[in-house]
Simulated scan of single mutants.
Amino acid sequence: MLTLYSSSEDKKKTEHLLALDGAKERLKLFKADLLEESSFDQAIDGCDAVFHTASPVLFTVTDPQTELIDPALKGTINVLNTCKQVSSVKRVILTSSTAAVLSRQPPIGPNDLVDETFFSDPSLCRETKNWYSLSKILAENAAWQFAKDNGIDMVVLNPGFICGPLLQPTLNMSVELIVDFINGKNPFNKRYYRFSDVRDVALVHIKALETPSANGRYIIDGPNMSVNDIIDILRKLFPDLSIADTNEESEMNEMICQVCVEKVKNLGVEFTPMKSSLRDTIVSLKEKCLL
Rank of each mutant, 00 (worst) to 15 (best):
S135E: 04
L177P: 03
A202C: 12
P212A: 15
F181Q: 04
M173G: 13
V155E: 03
L166M: 14
W144G: 07
I206K: 12
D153W: 01
S226L: 05
L157R: 02
A142P: 05
D180N: 15
D229V: 02
E210W: 00
L177G: 06
K136C: 09
K148F: 09
L134W: 00
A147G: 12
Y218G: 13
G151Y: 01
A142S: 14
L209F: 15
L167Y: 05
L234D: 07
R217K: 10
I231C: 11
D232G: 05
S133T: 04
F238G: 12
V198G: 06
L134F: 00
A208K: 01
L209S: 08
E176H: 14
I152K: 00
N183F: 02
L171I: 12
L171A: 13
V175R: 06
M173A: 15
M154Q: 02
S242K: 14
A244S: 14
P212L: 12
R199A: 09
R191E: 15
S226M: 06
V201Y: 01
N186W: 01
P223E: 15
L157T: 13
V155A: 07
L177T: 09
S242Q: 14
N189C: 11
G216Y: 01
D149F: 00
I220Y: 03
Y192V: 11
A142Y: 00
N158K: 05
L237M: 08
E140M: 02
S213H: 09
F238Q: 10
A208L: 03
I219K: 08
L167C: 09
S196P: 04
I219N: 10
Y193C: 07
G184L: 04
N186H: 07
I178L: 10
N141A: 12
S242R: 12
F146R: 00
N158E: 09
V204Y: 00
S135D: 06
S242L: 13
S133Y: 07
D180C: 14
A147W: 01
V204R: 00
